[in-house]
Amino acid sequence: MASQSGSYFVPAPTAWPFYLTVGLAVMLYGVAEYLNGNGVGSAPIVIGAAIAIYFIFVWYRGIIQESESGKYSAQVDRTYRWGMSWFIFSEVMFFAAFFGALFYARALSLEWLSGSGDGVLTNAYLWAGFEKEWPSNGPAAMGGDFEIIPPWGVPFLNTLILLTSGVTLTFAHHGLREGAPRGRVVAWMWATVALGCIFLFFQAEEYVLAYQELNLTLESGIYGSTFFMLTGFHGMHVTLGTLMLLIITLRLMKGHFKPDSHFGFEGVAWYWHFVDVVWLGLFVFVYIL
């Protein structure tokens, strides 16, 4: 497994990562000052984000150029496979923190607030009469009465959309591996990108509905917190995933990727399936149960 001799690609020195970090730091400084209300304006956020995005672009362009000029051996390919796998593992753990918060609140916090187990006195002195329910915005009814988004409407449709996008992506992948005409592979990819965009559109509609009609907001107690943070971070990942799908679609159209060598494609596909699986968890635990 670790036997490639002498041909591992060692990149030249580069300042891309440094400039990317400068951009990130300026952006975060701007956001921090914005949150503090210190009136430095949006300039640091915009400039920092622009620098960061530009150098992410430059960095990836460099990688694509190296890949297309044949500098990557099979061993480099394995590096990217391992790297992407472990990156996705770390993403899984990020979502695990928020799912953990959801389960903890539902199984323990609300239980104790309503007086079970050691929570008897908490309930008696602080929240007398509070009874566990789900969805809940807590004993103080934070944010006021709200309604939840029914799971079998748009969320179910979104589930079908994401699952379908996984299928179209797999069709594209099979086409690429079997040397199908480029046009057909690209068509499946555009279908996948479109499904990603439709999902995001529906998700945005749902947020508008929640805020305007249902009074379900970030401030709706623990339900609003977990609902919006979980679906929100998932939505950010879908946005990023759709962008990645778009980029590999454009690369396909330029004739990148070969039937036996296309990790750029596969990495994005893995990421998309990961986002898909997270959604299934969300659909079950946030929307249905």
Partner: peptide, 25 residues
């Protein structure tokens, strides 16, 4: 990262992860 993000939203965006009044803890 997730835990400190929850702190951030609790402080600035009105979430209730760590507020008993909202059902958190």
């Amino acid at each position: 990262a997730g835990a400190v993000t929850m702190l951030l939203t609790d402080k600035y965006f009105g979430t209730s992860f760590f507020t008993a009044a909202g059902g958190g803890d």
